[in-house]
């Protein structure tokens, strides 16, 4: 994965546990001298070792942590370097979801080696939206669920996110609790 994910993980750890924790944590992972670079591609194994380490630190499962990290990612992206890209991607939840593939397509131009997931808005009603998610990577569905929850919070939509397998990916269903807000 690209370094933007690792930068977010570092920010999460520092915000939650403090800089000394990260220094110890990264040293234990053999990353004491590592400065994550946004446009640099890192091995997925490293990414998952960070994810698993932080899951241990938060006393949660990998899936639970991924979901929390997904929510954090949206918050992190909106208040940091990626605020412009987030704003560019849409002003409403459905518009944002509809533009996600275009966003990833644009990112691929800047980072040609990136293996981006695909998000397809397959249904949009007053009651909610459905998004089909397909990725080369396995096991990131909790992260996607967290991302969608984060987006709901970003666009001030109260909704519940559920998912079910939908080969070759998963189908995520966001049901609005207050349809008028959509």
């Amino acid at each position: 994965m690209y370094g933007m994910v690792h930068k977010a993980a570092r920010a999460y750890a520092v915000e939650r546990f403090g800089e000394p924790f990260w220094l110890t944590f990264s040293e234990e992972l053999g990353l004491s001298d590592e400065t994550f670079v946004m446009g640099e591609s890192y091995a997925d194994a490293l990414t998952f070792s960070i994810i698993d380490g932080l899951a241990r630190a938060t006393a949660t499962s990998r899936a639970q942590f991924l979901q929390e990290f997904g929510r954090y990612w949206i918050e992190f992206a909106c208040r940091g370097d990626y605020a412009n890209l987030m704003a560019l991607s849409g002003a409403t939840l459905p518009a944002f979801l509809a533009n996600l593939d275009r966003l990833h397509s644009g990112l691929n131009v800047a980072m040609p080696g990136a293996r981006m997931p695909s998000f397809e808005l397959v249904d949009q009603t007053l009651e909610g939206v459905k998004v089909r998610y397909v990725s080369h990577r396995q096991g990131l569905e909790p992260f996607v669920a967290g991302l969608l929850e984060g987006l709901c919070a970003l666009f001030e939509v109260q909704g519940d996110v559920t998912s079910c397998p939908d080969e070759p990916g998963a189908l995520f269903d966001i049901r609005y609790r207050l349809p008028a807000a959509a």
């Binding site: 890209l85 704003a87 560019l88 518009a95 275009r102 397509s105 644009g106 990112l107 980072m111």
Partner: peptide, 26 residues
């Protein structure tokens, strides 16, 4: 884009303008 209030919904999927602005932002 942010200054002008433009998002991807205003950009044509045919002309690469979306990819251009994203790539430039990156």
């Amino acid at each position: 884009a942010k200054r002008l209030g433009v998002n991807l919904g205003a950009l044509s999927p045919c002309d690469g303008s979306a990819e251009l602005v994203i790539a430039n932002e990156m």
